[in-house]
Computed example of a mutant assay.
Amino acid sequence: MLDQRKYKLYKTELCRNWQEMGNCRYAKKCRFAHGKEELRCVKRHAKYKTDICRTFHETGTCSYGVRCNFIH
C-alpha cells in the first residue's frame, strides 16, 4: 500500500511514456495517469505559484519544470 505522501500524488500527473509512446510497461501498476479520465485533483497550498521562481528567471531553466511551486 502507498504511504500517505505518495498517495497524495498518485495519478495526479500524466504518464510521460503513455503520452509520448502510447503505452507504459507498468500498465495498471503505474503511479501516473494513462489519460485525463484517470487524473486526480491535487490540493495545493494557498500560495502555490504566487512567487517568481528565482532560478528560472536568473538562468532561464528550472530543474523542477512543471513541478516547480513557483511561477516561471
Rank of each mutant, 00 (worst) to 15 (best):
M1Y: 15
D3E: 14
D3W: 14
Q4H: 06
R5L: 07
K6L: 11
Y7P: 01
K8H: 05
Y10F: 15
Y10T: 06
K11R: 08
T12Q: 06
E13L: 07
R16G: 00
N17C: 09
Q19V: 04
Q19N: 02
G22M: 09
G22C: 02
N23L: 08
N23D: 13
C24Y: 08
C24V: 08
C24E: 04
R25V: 10
Y26F: 15
A27N: 15
K28F: 13
K28Y: 13
K29E: 13
C30N: 06
R31T: 07
F32H: 03
A33C: 03
H34G: 07
G35Q: 08
K36Q: 03
E37L: 04
E38K: 01
L39W: 01
R40Y: 11
C41A: 01
C41T: 02
K43G: 00
R44A: 08
K47E: 14
K49C: 06
K49I: 08
T50N: 03
D51M: 09
I52M: 13
I52W: 13
R54D: 13
R54Y: 14
H57Y: 15
E58K: 13
T59Y: 12
T59D: 09
T59R: 04
G60V: 00
G60Y: 04
T61Q: 08
T61G: 05
C62H: 05
C62G: 00
S63M: 09
V66D: 09
V66F: 12
V66Q: 10
R67M: 00
C68D: 06
F70P: 00
I71A: 15
H72E: 00
